[in-house]
Design a protein around this nucleic acid. Structure first.
Length: 295
DNA sequence: GGTAGACCTGGACGC
DNA sequence: GCGTCCAGGTCTACC
């Protein structure tokens, strides 16, 4: 379950992490409505099975769909950790390689939009309100496409992102935003990045961040947090532009895995401040992860 | 291609 | 309690 707590989105609604029980509770959109699953790993030994219990009976097809969504969330189908550890052996002993993510690409895209140009507490609030106002298992493209931008702004505190979110949802519903294309492993990184940058609300940072959640780690998602990491942890000095260049050079040797090498350095820093991520109580850390609080 | 300013929210701070 | 300032990426207009 350590890998559940490997990326900040595990702290965002509708995910609920219980640090005492070491369980993740997560509502999912399924064929016959929302079902809430509690995910746990009863035996903490490496490689032991993960168990999920639903709060209602699931049909066979719902069970299969829930399993598919959980596999995506926990990256249980990721076959690249060994290659990552060969490229960056620093993480081999701990086994760190997987970044948790959302059950759907659409949710990862919207969550990334809610993380842009705001401090972390606002991101937490936007996701909480989207689940309260639109759908408890996180809005689907259809549900969000039906909302008026003004409703999202007034009731979910998404600000100027309102129109962009509704536009993204409408594009997904109409097929102009092809979510399957984004998950197609035969498509090149450059193609995916170009596709993402053409979307409303997605710039260089958001595009690279979404790519990492798609399992494509060849680009750094550089934001103020990355600059802070360069200054505080790597000891770089100079202008932000100079630090960006040093960061790109620093992570270049990790090639296809550079985002993961960067991310686990950042995550180590967070854990040095707050303790292991699986011990974090969501309410207690809500104000902790903002660059200005980590200087 | 590079840059300035607008876009919003919520927290911090001063009064 | 109110007003002001600031942090945070994307987008557009302009040079």
């Amino acid at each position: 379950m350590r890998d559940v707590c490997s990326y900040g989105y595990f702290l965002l609604a509708p995910n609920v992490w219980d640090p005492d029980r070491k369980t993740m509770t997560r509502p999912l959109n399924l064929e016959n409505g929302v079902a809430t699953l509690t995910i746990a790993q009863p035996d903490i030994k490496k490689g032991s099975p993960i168990k999920a219990v639903a709060d209602r009976a699931l049909t066979r097809s719902e069970q299969q769909d829930a399993k598919r969504q959980l596999i995506r969330m926990l990256r249980l189908d990721d076959t690249s950790p060994a290659d990552f550890h060969r490229t960056d052996p620093r993480w081999k002993k701990s086994g760190k390689a997987r970044l948790s993510r959302s059950p759907t690409v659409f949710e990862d895209i919207i969550k990334t939009v809610t993380s842009c140009n705001v401090t972390w507490p606002s991101t937490v609030n936007m996701n909480k309100r989207l689940c309260e106002v639109v759908c408890p298992a996180f809005p689907t493209p259809k549900q969000m496409a039906r909302k008026r931008p003004a409703t999202l702004r007034a009731r979910c505190s998404v600000g100027y992102r309102d129109q962009r979110m509704v536009d993204l949802a409408k594009m997904a519903v109409r097929g102009e935003l092809d979510l399957d294309h984004l998950e197609d492993p035969t498509v090149s990184d450059d193609d995916i990045y170009e596709t993402l940058l053409a979307l409303p609300g997605i710039g260089p940072y958001a595009g690279a961040n979404i790519m990492s959640l798609l399992g494509r780690y060849s680009r750094l998602a550089i934001d103020t947090e990355t600059i802070r990491h360069g200054k505080v942890v790597l000891g770089y000095k100079g202008s932000d532009l100079a630090i960006r260049k040093k960061l790109e050079k620093h992570y270049a040797p990790f090639g296809e895995h550079k985002f993961r090498s960067y991310w686990f350095e950042v995550w180590d820093f967070y854990e040095s401040k707050q303790g292991p991520a699986h011990t974090w109580a969501p309410r207690a850390v809500v104000n902790a992860f903002t660059a200005s609080n980590l200087k």
